[in-house]
């Protein structure tokens, strides 16, 4: 078994806070009408933040670098764990979104919903918030592998700006389609989702590279 895979096992069995798993349930907020459902993605990241707090309290980073593994493997494992949790939450939201776009397209609470509806644009926003977490918080954490308060506050501010933008955009004339409840065949929406996926993959990949370089420079 490769070291990075063993380290992912270590993240899951030793370092992770149960709250990280539990908070993926906030993806169920995708069902709620009349609520800024994108906040659910923020809560998923808040759950991940708990694992970093738990890691720090338990000297997880020191334990890891003393193992016969490279420092870059340690960074990759943290990223893999974060991506795993984010993808579980994304999968829950994607399934609910699909149900809403197929079986609930005419449901009154959604059709008259003044807040964000679950559709491809919502899933793209969700990926943007996750990517921002990986870039601002996770990559920020590896500057010191110890301090994470400022990085998390920055993530809170930026992610809430994204939530506000998401809630405002579909009220702008011409952009109402962003809040559609029947957008399964709307090409524009699939393009937005594809853009969200590309953004998430790129930001996560690049931030992981940067985090590896940063962590190499850290004195424990």
């Amino acid at each position: 078994m490769k070291n990075s895979r063993k380290l992912l096992g270590k993240e899951i069995k030793l370092a992770a806070s149960p709250l990280s798993w539990l908070f993926t349930a906030f993806a169920l907020m995708t069902l709620i009408p009349g609520y800024p459902i994108l906040v659910g993605s923020f809560f998923v990241c808040l759950g991940l933040f708990q694992s970093f707090q738990s890691s720090r309290e338990n000297n997880d980073i020191l334990y890891t670098v003393l193992l016969p593994v490279s420092k870059t493997d340690a960074v990759k494992a943290k990223y893999r764990f974060v991506v795993l949790i984010q993808m579980i939450a994304f999968a829950i939201s994607a399934v609910i979104t699909l149900l809403r776009l197929t079986l609930m397209t005419k449901a009154t609470p959604y059709v008259t919903n003044p807040m964000m509806n679950a559709n491809q644009a919502f899933l793209a926003y969700m990926l943007v918030i996750f990517a921002l977490f990986n870039w601002l918080f996770l990559c920020g954490f590896f500057k010191t592998a110890y301090k994470f308060g400022a990085s998390f506050i920055l993530f809170i501010v930026v992610s809430f700006i994204v939530v506000i933008i998401g809630e405002v955009l579909h009220h702008i004339p011409g952009l109402e389609f962003l809040n559609g409840t029947d957008t399964l065949c709307d090409k524009r929406m699939w393009i937005i989702l594809a853009a969200g996926i590309v953004f998430y993959v790129l930001v996560t990949f690049v931030s992981c590279r940067v985090a590896m370089k940063r962590f190499e420079r850290v004195d424990m």
């Binding site: 063993k6 069995k13 030793l14 338990n58 000297n59 020191l62 193992l67 016969p68 593994v69």
Partner: peptide, 18 residues
């Protein structure tokens, strides 16, 4: 000390894999 609230056998089960 590492993973203060985890059982020693759990810590060992992970450590030995490396």
């Amino acid at each position: 000390d590492y993973y203060k609230k985890k059982k020693i056998k759990k810590i060992i089960s992970v450590t030995k894999t490396f």
